[in-house]
């Protein structure tokens, strides 16, 4: 591996690095030299990390801790799509202000999740890690993603490592030769089969035309309301699902099947069509451009649902939306 200097002098511009630690000592050894370099170079340093990491790094920095901006991870980590958008907006704001920023982020995506939830939230977050490589690159910044191997399985850690073009090690930031290109990773995600829906569901609707959308929305409203969702959260479920059903009717092939069920605290909506048209690798991950005429439905769904998983087979396209109660009621929506 070749070493990379992430300070302004000789900087390669955008640096998206994984920082994988297994102890407080490894955290200090790997992160502190990088923070020192960033501060010395006059960069703004933003730490969006958990309480334990903050304590360790503050103690290690001593008097220099005051030069660092400490941001509670809760300010960023909400629904997964919104989390990504919040970071993007933050970086855009910093870039516009004209000062290079080094953000150290410790994804806080497991702590508040229901352990019985029907989705692996960490796995659902990884596409956004991959997307950083393209979406944040224009902001000429450094983003260091901190993952603690004491909190995540080895497979997750290896997956995280593969999605970062750089890794922060004890001897500096180095290029990661095992890096997986973003487009390849995202395309592969659509090939992963979803867990089968339960045999018994709350809602099971068939949609043949756009004229039936209003009926679907009414059914979803009644269902989510009956499951204890508040008005704004119901709107989110309905708006997200409407966009996916519309896509299925317009771009897939009717009949479209819409199912809804509850698993633990999560409402799940699955939309299936028989078009078997593979979704674009970046489908719904990139914000629509001003005036863009199509392609907004999946973007909206990825913002309003906590997690969206998709799978295309030879005969069907499946899109599954997850709305955990607590996370969906966390607000307000800050995107945009």
């Amino acid at each position: 591996m070749s070493q990379v200097d992430i300070t302004r002098d000789g900087a390669p511009g955008f640096v998206h690095a994984a920082l994988i630690v297994d102890s407080d000592r490894s955290l200090r050894e790997r992160l502190l030299p990088a923070l020192d370099r960033s501060l010395s170079a006059g960069e703004a340093v933003v730490m969006a990390v958990g309480a334990h990491t903050e304590r360790v790094v503050r103690a290690a920095l001593g008097g220099r801790a005051g030069a660092v901006e400490w941001s509670a991870p809760g300010a960023f980590y909400q629904r997964l799509g919104l989390t990504f958008s919040a970071f993007r907006d933050h970086l855009a704001h910093r870039h516009a202000a004209g000062r290079r920023v080094h953000v150290v982020a410790e994804p806080d995506i497991v702590a508040s999740a229901d352990p019985e939830a029907p989705i692996d939230r960490v796995a659902a977050y990884l596409p956004y890690e991959a997307l950083c490589n393209q979406a944040y690159a224009v902001f000429d910044c450094a983003v260091t993603c901190l993952w603690d191997s004491r909190r995540h399985p080895a497979l997750v850690i290896e997956g995280v490592r593969d999605l970062h073009p750089f890794e922060m090690t004890a001897v500096g930031v180095r290029a990661n030769l095992g890096f997986t290109a973003t487009a390849d990773y995202l395309a592969g995600r659509n090939l992963i089969a979803l867990e089968p829906p339960p045999a018994s569901v709350d809602l099971d609707l068939e949609v043949g035309s756009l004229g039936e959308l209003a009926g679907v929305r009414a059914a979803l409203r009644g269902w989510a309301g009956g499951r204890g969702f508040a008005v704004e959260a119901i709107d989110d479920v309905v708006t997200a699902a409407d966009g996916i059903v519309t896509n299925a009717v317009e771009h897939g092939r009717p009949p479209v099947r819409v199912r809804g069920w509850q698993a633990a605290d999560t409402l799940v909506v699955q939309v299936d069509d028989t078009g078997a048209v593979p979704l674009p690798a970046f489908g719904g991950y990139r914000p629509p451009s001003p005036g863009q005429r199509r392609g907004r439905g999946l973007w909206i769904a990825r913002q309003l649902a906590d997690a969206v998983t998709t799978h295309t087979t030879d005969s069907h396209t499946h899109v599954r939306l997850h709305f955990p109660h607590e996370i969906t009621h966390r607000g307000p929506i800050t995107n945009g």
Binding site: D235, P287, P288, W299, I300, I333, N335, G336
Partner: peptide
């Protein structure tokens, strides 16, 4: 609801 849709689409203005 429309205001939120526009914000989610990053549209704080429409020409």
């Amino acid at each position: 609801q429309l205001d939120r849709m526009l914000r989610l689409n990053s549209q704080d203005a429409i020409e």
